[in-house]
Design a protein around this nucleic acid. Structure first.
Length: 187
DNA sequence: AGAGTGATGGGCT
DNA sequence: GCCCATCACTCTT
């Protein structure tokens, strides 16, 4: 099991997104397999970066491999992996993972034992991701003794050869762009 | 399984 | 002010 290299994330979001399927989101003992992602670019009216850099979205314009977290609907956090080159304003929204390990901790944070991480807000709650994690480098080992060890890993399971491709959810513009990739869970 | 709805707060058009 | 890249609960097929 190895941490993803930054060079694997410097492509365009719509190219990188499907390669993140089956990769692992890891935080300490908590592990989830990524099963749903969406791509967002600066040319894309649905993207936070579409109107240029602001204090809120500045992480999106930084280096690939960092975590862009935003708060929405007054109660939910969403986690994105920055892609592309510095200044591009691209990211991949992590919409769902299949919990593999550390499920008890996720259940405790979620307050329920079903539907633990099958949505962008739920995923963040399960992993305890909030605004304090915005900008975190997912490709770097955390400093020794740091509380947070959030990262992206490859356990050797290849991305699905032909994932389900569809249009993105929860947006009002760019609705026809097929930049959502999903893997159907076995259960 | 699917539709409708209220909760809730930061950022911006 | 108003708008969300949402969730959980409820009621209905």
């Amino acid at each position: 099991m190895r941490r993803l290299r930054r060079s694997e994330l410097t492509g365009d979001a719509y190219d990188v997104a499907p390669t993140l399927l089956h990769k692992l989101l890891v935080d300490g003992s908590c592990v989830g397999r990524i099963i749903e992602v969406e791509a967002y670019t600066a040319d894309d009216p649905a993207s936070h970066s579409f109107r240029g850099m602001t204090t809120r979205n500045s992480t999106m314009f930084g280096p690939a491999g960092h975590l862009y977290v935003y708060f929405t609907y007054g109660m939910h956090h969403c986690a994105n992996v920055v892609t592309g080159d510095v200044g591009d304003g691209q990211a991949v929204l992590l919409r769902a993972v299949e919990p593999l390990e550390g499920i008890e901790a996720m259940v405790a944070r979620r307050g329920r034992s079903r539907n633990i991480a099958d949505g962008p807000g739920k995923l963040c709650q399960a992993f305890g991701i909030d605004m304090s994690d915005n900008g975190l480098d997912l490709c770097a080992q955390g400093p020794k003794g740091s509380v947070r060890s959030l990262g992206l890993y490859d356990d050797g399971m290849p991305p699905p050869p032909s994932p389900t491709v569809s249009t993105r959810i929860g947006i009002s513009v760019g609705v026809d762009t097929p930049w959502r990739w999903t893997v159907t869970r076995a259960d």
